[in-house]
């Protein structure tokens, strides 16, 4: 620390500014003067949103929904409450300093969206409903949306679990045993890159039901990247780790399960993240084409009825649903690979 600080000072053209920014990241005193504005960003944005909603012009038929102004009012009240309470809680203050700009801009974006659609009618209807239309679709259709989310979750987790389990077995086998590598790698390289969705015609013929075919396709989508990265992780295990283990009396099982697999875990997680991305895609397509439930099906169905508020509502749920699962996988990785902390930049 003492060694690098002067170096930084010499390298940076505006050292004092850089230092101030650096300090403010940990302790707040540097930004005291701008604080009130920052902390009031959310309620101000909500107030602007409310003003646009109630005072703005109406381009078409007015929607008799109160969900949107209610939501904005709740945001307004919470924002003011937070701005008041942060005086007593430094923890809340730090959180608000971090989150207020992005949340405020998000609320403001909704207001602009309403201005462009409902108020000024700049975008063609019914393809671009305002935020109040999407919100009321979410609330009105909550039962079906919940059911669809639930079905998507089951398909996704089922397929992901099956695909990952198979991929770990094939990946470790191909990565460890030279014979498996000789025969398995070409198959993997030829079959693997085919997008899982391209198998839909075959899956519909082979699988006993649409649900099986969807689970199978998701599993296939996960299987390829996880197998590939597991195999490369295993075969790239540092030879000296294996040498050390062997001179300590390790047998083959120990070498595979206690040395090669832990050494490959960072790679395996990259495969799991890639697989999660492709499994979302495959899930939505499979639901649209075959399965008569799930968020993918819901989007296609709502579009068929030209209910674009519902389409966007489902997209909002999908965004929340997928990003939650992604976050959970990050959490799992942080737990499993805790030993990497400080070794690499996360």
């Amino acid at each position: 620390m003492e060694l690098t600080a002067p170096l930084n000072r010499a390298a940076s053209p505006r050292p004092t500014e850089a230092e101030a920014a650096n300090r403010s990241a940990t302790r707040p005193p540097g930004l005291l003067r701008t604080r009130p504005q920052t902390l009031l960003l959310v309620p101000v944005a909500a107030a602007i949103g409310l003003a646009i909603h109630f005072l703005g012009p109406r381009a078409g038929v007015a929607l008799t929904t109160h969900f949107y102004p209610w939501l904005l009012s709740v945001v307004l009240v919470l924002g003011l409450l937070g701005a008041g309470l942060q005086v007593f809680s430094p923890k809340l203050r730090d959180w608000m300093r971090q989150m207020c700009p992005i949340l405020g801009v998000a609320v403001l974006a909704m207001a602009v969206w309403q201005l462009v659609t409902t108020c000024l009618g700049l975008l063609p209807m019914p393809y671009f409903p305002g935020p109040e239309g999407v919100l009321s679709a979410l609330v009105d259709d909550r039962a079906l949306l919940f059911d669809s989310t639930w079905h998507s979750l089951i398909l996704l987790l089922g397929g992901y679990a099956i695909g990952t389990a198979l991929a770990l077995i094939t990946g470790v086998t191909i990565g460890w045993f030279p014979h498996a590598r000789y025969w398995g790698m070409p198959v993997l390289k030829v079959i693997g890159p085919i997008p899982a969705t391209a198998w839909i015609p075959l899956a519909m013929v082979v699988a006993p039901s649409a649900i099986f075919s969807a689970v199978g396709l998701v599993a296939l989508a996960v299987w390829f990247p996880v197998t590939m990265l597991t195999a490369s992780g295993i075969s790239n295990t540092r030879a000296s780790y294996l040498d050390v283990a062997r001179t300590l009396g390790a047998g083959r099982a120990y070498l595979i399960f206690r040395v090669a697999i832990p050494a490959a875990l960072p790679n395996i997680f990259i495969g799991l993240f890639m697989g999660l991305g492709t499994s979302f895609l495959t899930l939505v397509v499979a639901e649209t084409v075959g399965v008569k439930s799930g968020l993918g099906w819901y989007v296609a169905w709502a579009q068929g009825w030209a209910e674009y508020g519902k389409v966007y509502g489902a997209l909002v749920i999908m965004a929340a649903f997928f990003s939650t699962i992604m976050t959970l996988l990050f959490r799992v990785r942080d737990r499993v690979l805790v030993w990497q902390k400080g070794v690499i930049k996360w």
């Binding site: 050390v244 283990a245 300590l248 390790a250 206690r258 832990p262 050494a263 030993w339």
Partner: peptide, 24 residues
């Protein structure tokens, strides 16, 4: 065998590294 590089398993704590021979 002890190498120039300690070759400790980075995923194991110090205690678990020392245990490797016994576990194996």
């Amino acid at each position: 065998l002890v190498f120039q590089d300690p070759n400790l398993f980075p995923w194991l704590t110090v205690r678990r590294n020392i245990e490797v021979g016994l576990v194996a």
